[in-house]
Amino acid sequence: MNLANLPARVAAAPGLARWGRHLTAEVLLEAGDRRWILSIRDGALRSAEPAPAIMPRYDLALRFDAEGFARFLGASPPPGWHDLMALMRRGALRVEGDIQPFMAHLFWFKGALALLREDAA
């Protein structure tokens, strides 16, 4: 999966910048054995790059199991796989570290990650 154009998609999504206007964080996105760092400043996604293999730095981690992430990214995710909280309930997503940026900006995280669905379609 290529996250390279995610920053542009986030910038173009109506409302996301407003939901995340006070969100500044380094977020580890993990799906199975793949890992990226999302670098967010004031609601803008500055970069989404593969995480360094050695000593990655981040504030919080979103750890998806590979199957759960693939189902979430489907064009029409089935019930129970269609939302971050749904994945948390079934154990397919673990949120770890400083939870505050995630909960305080949950609309941003849900909206930004749902934009990845266009790649999966």
């Binding site: 029409s76 939302d83 909280m85 749904a86 505050q100 909960m103 305080a104 609309f107 849900k110």
Partner: peptide, 28 residues
């Protein structure tokens, strides 16, 4: 299945976090 403490916490806007928590419960 989540920590409900966040629904009433000075470090998260209560209205926004409550709505965001339930938003996925609505069918796509």
């Amino acid at each position: 299945y989540y920590d409900t403490e966040w629904l009433h916490h000075p470090h998260a806007h209560g209205g926004e976090v409550c709505a965001a928590v339930v938003s996925g419960l609505i069918a796509p």
